[in-house]
Simulated scan of single mutants.
Amino acid sequence: MDPLTRFLFALQEISLLNWRWFTSLFSKPRYGSEMIRQMDLIGVGSLPIVLLTGFFTGGVLVLQTVPTLRAYGSDSLTGQLVATSLIRELGPVLSALMVSGRIGSAISAELGSMVVSQQIDAMRALGTDPVRKLVAPRLVALIFMLPLLTVAADIFGLLGGGIVAKYLYNLDINIFIQSVRDGISTSDIIGGIIKPLFFGLVIGSVACFKGLSTTGGTVGVGKSTTDAVVVASIWVIIFDFFLSKALQYLLDIGSL
């Protein structure tokens, strides 16, 4: 099978998988306890790595930009630059990539192991729909929790930027905070929440598809896990471009 045909086949299967789990939400059983458990695993479990990423990303932004801004006498705009960069772009994308590496791989490995050990076949034999039981709770949890993780990363990024600005470059923290306020608009916040919704859908869809399509025993599980992380990360970056352009048009974010 040539690469184009393989890609179109995978896109078709992922689309059908998304349709099946979405329509399953409107009928019973819904497995609410499993959704809550997945939200805990995805949200609380991913919180430390996302907060750490956000904190040091904000610090690095200040570290790299203050010398240049100071050369032009514009270091008072540091907070605006950090806030705009984090909320519009770096917060959603980096949070999605961290979650893709941690959760995408875990979902793919878990579902792949269930496939090769024939647990999925056993569920079907007992009359349980694997998509309703396994896929829907994970995707719902990702779609709900990734925006919250992104907001947390943004807040800690601004905190890290403020600490670096104050203690390494002696910037007045009140000026930094005011600059952050001036640099954030309602459209930026809305756009920064919309992006993770789509990123969560992409990560969950790819991870579940790769896991459920695992073949080749335990070696296949490893391959599916690797493919899930790589493919989901690539699609997050691709989707980010098109979402940014769409948000520019719809919410007037970043347009001239």
Score class of each variant (00 low, 15 high):
193 I>C: 12
199 F>V: 01
142 L>F: 11
248 Q>Y: 00
154 D>Y: 04
243 L>Y: 01
130 P>F: 07
52 L>P: 06
210 K>Y: 13
54 G>D: 11
154 D>I: 02
58 G>I: 02
168 L>V: 10
41 L>P: 01
110 E>W: 07
181 R>K: 12
161 G>H: 10
159 L>A: 14
63 L>N: 06
161 G>D: 07
18 N>V: 02
141 A>K: 04
45 G>E: 05
101 G>S: 12
225 T>R: 00
62 V>A: 08
5 T>A: 14
137 P>S: 05
73 G>I: 14
117 S>K: 12
92 P>Q: 12
98 M>E: 02
254 G>K: 04
17 L>Y: 01
238 I>R: 00
227 D>I: 02
11 L>Y: 03
98 M>Q: 04
182 D>F: 11
37 R>C: 11
77 L>I: 08
123 M>N: 06
83 A>V: 13
26 F>Q: 05
68 T>D: 15
43 G>D: 09
121 D>T: 06
89 E>T: 09
86 L>E: 13
195 K>G: 09
106 A>V: 05
247 L>Q: 01
88 R>F: 07
197 L>V: 14
129 D>S: 14
126 L>I: 04
82 V>Q: 05
131 V>L: 08
247 L>G: 00
187 S>M: 11
63 L>P: 01
56 F>E: 03
35 M>P: 01
255 S>T: 15
165 A>C: 13
166 K>P: 02
216 G>H: 11
197 L>Y: 01
113 S>P: 05
76 S>N: 10
23 T>G: 11
19 W>C: 11
115 V>D: 06
88 R>A: 03
152 A>W: 06
181 R>L: 13
144 F>A: 14
185 S>G: 15
170 N>G: 03
122 A>R: 10
188 D>R: 03
49 I>T: 14
106 A>R: 02
158 L>W: 05
29 P>W: 06
10 A>F: 00
65 T>D: 13
40 D>R: 15
51 L>A: 15
1 M>Q: 08
152 A>G: 03
91 G>H: 10
185 S>A: 13
123 M>K: 09
224 S>V: 05
98 M>D: 02
168 L>K: 10
224 S>P: 02
163 I>F: 13
135 V>T: 03
24 S>Y: 08
223 K>E: 12
147 P>E: 12
184 I>K: 06
77 L>H: 10
135 V>A: 07
78 T>S: 09
189 I>D: 04
25 L>A: 15
40 D>W: 14
5 T>I: 12
181 R>M: 09
145 M>K: 06
246 A>C: 00
90 L>N: 03
9 F>C: 08
103 I>D: 05
195 K>L: 10
221 V>T: 03
64 Q>I: 01
69 L>I: 12
89 E>V: 06
256 L>Y: 13
195 K>F: 08
82 V>W: 07
197 L>R: 02
14 I>A: 01
253 I>L: 12
208 C>N: 07
153 A>N: 04
48 P>E: 08
82 V>F: 09
144 F>Y: 08
5 T>G: 10
229 V>K: 01
208 C>Y: 07
209 F>A: 05
252 D>T: 08
111 L>N: 00
162 G>V: 11
52 L>A: 14
24 S>N: 11
104 G>P: 03
